[in-house]
């Protein structure tokens, strides 16, 4: 097992090294940030001074190694636009995104699993068919379009909920959060629902197929024969058995929901990391782009590493490399 862990750690480190080169070179191939940092009527001297200050006069490979050296000491450089250390900029935006992602994945799981269990328990009921139609729509319709319709319905036509921003926030442990206040909850409702719909569709399908399979097994037949109530059967036997795959997907989806948050945050002007990356792309703020991409890559590599290790801990065939 130790050998496997070391092997996977080396692989993960190699992937991160490759990703950092690709991201760095890729981002540095785009546009010339000097034109954005200095005023258009600046003299040649000011221009060259800016180039030197940003380190853009060095050859690319030296810029890369300076960057990597900084990153290893926790320094991702300073934003060209905000003139603030990138890491603190991202850290300042992170709570908004984390809050949004956690709430929406939680909603998706709770609502999705309940609907899915019902649809699997009574597969031919009209409501179950409606639920499945909903999940097909949830899969097909692009996230940004759902967001627009939510704004149009709940913010513009009905006027029940605000269409953007974080609302009133509360300071907890030095970080601002929206969810503890009523106003904050009202602001988070629409973006969270928007982000949750796709995951909800997936959870519905997962729970439904799991329940349908388990309901046909002998376990359920014997439990019914023993006179156990349907509610107890569902709770004790069915839910317990479908829990494992749902928890796995829950973990994996946390990562990909972060990616979709980019779209949702843009629509609802939610001041999180996703909005930051879109803004930095349009403003050519290279340090922020590089840092965001590398941190995201690190997040996904870590998630994959943990999933691999968890499977290896459960299934010895994975460790020995038999089941590939």
């Amino acid at each position: 097992m130790l050998g496997f862990v070391i092997q996977r750690l080396i692989q993960a480190a190699a992937v991160m090294a490759v990703m950092s080169v690709i991201v760095f070179v890729g981002v540095y191939a785009v546009g010339n940030p000097v034109d954005i940092v200095i005023p258009p009527d600046a003299t040649q001297d000011v221009r060259e001074e800016a180039i030197r200050r940003l380190g853009l006069d060095l050859p690319l490979w030296r810029q890369y190694f300076l960057f990597v050296g900084g990153v290893l000491q926790g320094d991702f450089g300073r934003s060209f636009i905000y003139n603030e250390p990138v890491l603190s900029l991202i850290a300042g935006r992170a709570p908004a995104t984390i809050e949004l992602v956690l709430i929406s994945v939680l909603c998706a799981t709770v609502i999705g699993v309940s609907l899915g269990v019902y649809a699997g328990y009574r597969p031919h009921a009209p409501l179950a068919r409606a639920i499945m139609a909903l999940s097909v729509l949830g899969f097909s319709v692009p996230t940004f379009w759902v967001g627009l319709i939510l704004i149009l319905t709940f913010a513009v036509s009905l006027g029940w909920l605000p269409a953007g921003g974080r609302g009133e926030t509360v300071l907890i442990l030095g970080v601002r959060w929206s969810f503890p206040t009523l106003d904050g909850l009202a602001h988070i409702a629409l973006p969270a629902l928007n982000l949750a719909l796709f995951k909800m569709a997936m959870m519905i399908r997962l729970a439904r197929s799991g329940v349908r399979e388990i309901m046909l097994t002998d376990t359920i037949r014997f439990a019914r024969a023993a006179g156990i109530s349907e509610a107890t059967i569902l709770r004790r036997h069915v839910l317990k058995l479908i829990a494992a795959p749902i928890i796995t997907v829950f973990g994996l989806e946390l990562g990909s929901t972060l990616a979709f948050a980019v779209v949702t945050e843009t629509i609802f002007s939610w001041p999180g990391m996703g909005k930051l990356i879109i803004d930095s792309i349009t403003l050519l703020d290279r340090p922020v782009m590089v840092a965001y991409l590398i941190l995201t890559a690190l997040l996904f590599v870590t998630i994959n590493l943990l999933v691999d290790l968890a499977y290896a801990a459960i299934d010895p065939r994975v460790r020995s490399g038999e089941a590939r």
């Binding site: 890729g26 981002v27 785009v30 990616a259 979709f260 980019v262 792309i281 995201t296």
Partner: peptide, 13 residues
């Protein structure tokens, strides 16, 4: 990696 993130980054680059 989520495809939307890849597409987003690449089209930005």
């Amino acid at each position: 990696f989520p495809p939307i993130l890849l597409a987003l980054v690449l089209s930005a680059l």
